[in-house]
């Protein structure tokens, strides 16, 4: 039994700390907002130009001028502020954001991340991901452990174009948790999803890793 999307989001939420400014990517990372512990003050940044993202609006109360980086309608909080894209990425590049949680296509044992392009196939673009992984203090990637085809995604070296080299601190997959520490120390498995065995995760991982359960 692997972790569900919500269980992965809940595990990622355990990386949050009181007072953190946090940027959440699209997909499973967005779900992390549902698991902020009660009483913990966390401010969500949206890189299109907002601090203090509120919940989705009630039906009929959507505001076309108020969206998140995934282009979804959102609401503001009493503590919110708005700013330009240049200011937004100044706070990202300048190291003011404590934690970035984002999705991935491939991660390497050296802490490289690929999540923006499949040559000849997917033409979407990197958006703000390259700036986030270059500038945010701690980068957590949340992704499925293997491709739909069963091919591993935690590799010795990424085969897809990189989003950043040596940028990933922690990887959470549906099978377990790995400390990567930007490739500065050996890749280490620190938690297994409930019902997942070490043999299973070894069989589904190309990268070499230490076990520190």
């Amino acid at each position: 039994m692997a972790w569900t999307r919500d269980e992965m989001a809940a595990r990622a939420a355990s990386e949050l700390r009181d007072g953190f400014y946090v940027n959440l990517g699209i997909g499973i990372p967005t779900l992390v907002a549902n698991y902020i512990p009660a009483g913990m003050h966390v401010t969500l940044q949206s890189e299109n130009g907002m601090l203090g993202m509120g919940p989705f609006p009630y039906e009929g109360e959507e505001d076309a001028d108020l969206i998140n980086a995934g282009k979804q309608t959102i609401t503001e909080l009493d503590s919110s502020s708005y700013f330009s894209s240049a200011d937004s990425f100044a706070m990202i590049r300048g190291g003011r954001i404590a934690l970035s949680i984002l999705g991935g296509m491939q991660v390497s044992e050296k802490g490289d991340l690929a999540n923006w392009m499949v040559p000849g196939k997917v033409v979407k673009g990197m958006g703000g991901a390259m700036d986030l992984v270059a500038g945010v203090k701690r980068v957590v990637v949340v992704m499925d452990h293997v491709e739909k085809s069963g091919a591993p995604k935690l590799l010795k070296a990424c085969t897809l174009p990189l989003t950043g080299a040596g940028v990933v601190d922690l990887l959470i997959t549906d099978l377990g948790v790995f400390e990567i520490n930007r490739g500065k120390s050996p890749l280490k498995l620190t938690a297994l999803a409930s019902g997942v065995t070490l043999d299973e995760i070894k069989a589904k991982t190309e990268a070499e890793f230490e076990v520190g359960l």
Binding site: E47, S85, G125, G128
Partner: peptide
Amino acid sequence: YLSGELELEFNPQGTLAERI
């Protein structure tokens, strides 16, 4: 883009904002 009728230059969002 894939048929070659459109040129494209991708810039990271923060780099694009700062270039401008």
